[in-house]
């Protein structure tokens, strides 16, 4: 049974995403709209990680050693400027997508183990992740024309 590996993957990705939201806010302090939203989403991601944690423990008893290359870092710090912001948001989008699809896989696993409690948790995380992805997409759509076509 490898469910714990995927739960750990989700836990790590959510923790990484929370930290990435905070980093992007610190890295782009003069963007007028980043402060409040990024902090809010960081708190949300931290909350997801906390909710997933008990299930990691619940399933790790059946789990063998973690397979290689299970977890790969997707965000390695901010870059300056308008293009940098766009690229950073792009990284976060990929990281959020990893969390989102992990939730979908775990939901399938939870059905397999008849674990309604886990199903409930990942469904809730998935719902909030969908809003995070929408926000990232919205913010990138706003930034893209100026960053890609106008800025030199």
């Amino acid at each position: 049974m490898h469910l714990a590996h995927y739960l750990r993957l989700l836990h790590r990705s959510q923790t990484a995403l929370a930290e990435a939201f905070r980093e992007i806010r610190r890295g782009h302090p003069h963007e007028p709209d980043m402060y409040g939203v990024c902090e809010r989403l960081a708190v949300q991601c931290g909350d997801h990680a906390r909710r997933v944690e008990p299930f990691v423990r619940r399933y790790e008893a059946w789990t063998s050693q973690e397979p290689e290359r299970l977890h790969r870092p997707l965000f390695a710090g901010t870059r300056p400027g308008g293009l940098g912001l766009l690229r950073d948001l792009h990284d976060l989008y990929l990281l959020a997508t990893e969390c989102d699809i992990a939730c979908t896989m775990i939901a399938q696993g939870a059905r397999g183990t008849r674990d309604d409690e886990l199903l409930d948790v990942v469904r809730r995380c998935g719902g909030e992740l969908a809003v995070q992805l929408s926000w990232l997409r919205t913010r990138m759509r706003h930034a893209a024309p100026q960053a890609l076509v106008v800025a030199t």
């Binding site: 709209d33 939203v37 989403l41 809003v131 929408s134 926000w135 997409r137 919205t138």
Partner: peptide, 9 residues
């Protein structure tokens, strides 16, 4: 849009 973040639906 989402009232909390401004994400467009």
């Amino acid at each position: 849009h989402d009232l909390a973040t401004g994400a467009e639906w």
